[in-house]
């Protein structure tokens, strides 16, 4: 039986990723990249809408996708902490997208063949898009990792900075596919890409405990309009 929290976790991962990527529109290193990041943000938002709608229906308390996106506080968000981390430079965007899409692709594939029909339909749709995200982040990781001294340094720094949040990708249960079951496939994909990009795989690091200031800040911006004008529509 799929729990509400399980669906929220996947939906929140996608929603927060879409919000972070949206901030890069017109700030990428080239125009094609602005378009690419906006496309990927839109894919993530599409998956988030389907997942949050489903979570609201399972919960049965009358909350729709908008209520879940705009009317929850940070403490009620179930996303892994990786996705809310800040992106000080483009290398951080690519590193995060690599680590995330190497997780989302095999997860969606497994869900597509899983017992929950609704998640199977969403997974079957989203996996095609995730394949493009993984492909895109892989190409950039290779280009930056095996590029100039500076791009290599920045790419490695980005991977190192995000590594403490890797364990969080695989936590959680309550659905047809346990995130932990995805780890072997993820490790194989990520280690292969990092190696080809002449980057090193960091040693395991524990996730820092404590508050989630980045999520609080992100939500303040994302929810501002809805909170100031409840029920506002375009």
């Amino acid at each position: 039986m799929t729990t509400v929290d399980y669906v929220l976790r996947l939906g929140d991962d996608a929603l927060i990723t879409a919000q972070r990527l949206g901030a890069w529109y017109a700030a990428g290193p080239e125009m094609e990249e602005d378009v690419a990041l906006a496309n990927i943000a839109l894919d993530q938002l599409g998956a988030a809408r389907l997942l949050l709608t489903y979570a609201g229906e399972r919960e049965g308390a009358g909350r729709d996708e908008d209520a879940l996106a705009y009317q929850r506080d940070a403490a009620a968000f179930r996303n892994c902490r990786l996705v809310e981390q800040p992106e000080p430079d483009f290398a951080a965007v690519i590193a995060k997208l690599l680590l995330l899409s190497a997780f989302q692709l095999p997860l969606y594939e497994a869900l597509a063949a899983g017992a929950d029909e609704r998640l199977a339909a969403i997974g079957g749709k989203a996996r095609k898009e995730s394949a493009y995200h993984l492909d895109h982040s892989t190409l950039w990781t290779l280009r930056l990792g095996d590029g100039t001294d500076e791009s290599h340094e920045r790419m490695q720094a980005a991977i190192d900075a995000l590594w403490p949040f890797v364990d969080g990708l695989f936590s959680g249960e309550g659905g047809p596919v346990a995130p932990a079951a995805i780890r072997p496939a993820w490790t194989s994909t990520v280690e292969d890409v990092l190696k080809r990009a002449t980057l090193s795989v960091p040693a395991p690091v524990a996730e820092p405990a404590g508050e989630r200031p980045h999520l609080v800040e992100l939500l303040a911006e994302m929810q501002e309009l809805h909170r100031a004008h409840p029920g506002a529509r375009w």
């Binding site: 094609e32 990249e33 378009v35 690419a36 496309n39 990927i40 839109l42 493009y132």
Partner: peptide, 13 residues
């Protein structure tokens, strides 16, 4: 191919 992502989600440049 210049970019895998184009002017709409379904197109590449």
């Amino acid at each position: 191919q210049l970019s895998r992502f184009g002017s709409t989600a379904c197109k590449a440049l």
